[in-house]
Amino acid sequence: MSGGVEITVRVAEIEQATASVKRFRLASASGEPLPVFSAGSHVVVSMDDGGHRIRNPYSLIDRAPDGLSYRIGVLRTPNSRGGSIFMHERVSVGSELVITMPVNLFPLIRTGRKHVLVAGGIGVTPIYAMADELRSQNAPYEVHYAMRDEANGAFAAELVERHGDKVRLYRDDAREIIRVEEMLPNQPLGTHLYVCGPEGMINAILAGGRAAGWPVENLHSERFLAPPGGAPFSVALAKAGITAEVGPHQSLLEAIEEAGVDAPYLCRGGACGQCVTTVLSFEGELIHNDHYLTDEEKASGTKIMTCVSRLNGRELVLDL
C-alpha cells in the first residue's frame, strides 16, 4: 500500500477499438460512484498475475454520466514485461482489478485563450478527455490525431462525431504527417499546445513549437513511459535486529512498517524531513527521490528519506 485510496473495479465491457487497442469499461464494484476526475488524469491499474503484482498507469478516457464507470484504452505493447499483455489476454468481462484515485500530471491550463490538442496512436486517451472537457467549457480548441491506418479508427470516428470540423486526422499509411510549422504560427497569443504520443512525435512537436517561437510554458506533453521502477532490495535495521525485503512497488518506509518497526514520518512525500534516517552502510547506489536532503547530503551517502528513496543494489543497513 502506498497510502493512497484504492478502488476495486469490475470489467463491465471490452471493445476491440483498433487492431491493437482494447477499450475497457471499469465499473465500480461497490456500486458507489467513481471519483470525478479532471481531463488528462490517469489511474494506476494493479493486476494480480498469479501472486505477482503488475501496476501500470492508464489515462482515463471518460466517466459514464451516472458516474459508475470509467473507460481506459490499452495498446498491446510488443516486448511487454506483462501489463498490457495481461490486460489483453487475461482480463475478461467480470474480472476484478484494483485502481488508484485519479492523478493528473497532464492538466489543461485554464487560463489558456485557445487549446491545440495533438495525439499520436494510443496517446489519444488523455486527449479524448481533454477535448470533451474543452467542449463542455465552450473553450476554443482544435484536435490533431495521427494514426497508423484506417483500421486504427474507433477513436477517430468518435472524435469526429463529437467535435466535428475541430478535428483533423492524419494517416501514416497515406503519408499524412502533422506539420507543426503550418499548425503553430497562426494561433492566437496565449494558445497552449498539448501533445501525447510516441516519443519521436512528442520531440518533433515540441521542437517545432520552440522553433516557432512559442514560450516553453505553453507547450505541454505526456510520455507514456513506465515510472522509474524500483528494483527490490533488502534492508537491515541495526537496532531492531531485523532484516526485511523491500518489494519493487513498496517504499522503504512501508517495508519497515511491515516489519513491525515504528519509523517516523509525516508527509510521506519527501518534503517534511521527518523520516530522515541514518545510513550505516550499503552495497549499491542510493536513489534519492526526496526534496529534503541537500545535494551534498545526498552525495555523502549517510542519510536517506525512507518515504520516497531507495537502494539500487543488494542491502541497505539503517540505524533503526
Binding site: G4, P35, G270, H291
Partner: peptide
Amino acid sequence: RALKFLLNLQQG
C-alpha cells in the same frame, strides 16, 4: 520543499 510537496498533492 512545501511547494514541491503541494504540486504533487493527490486527490483523496
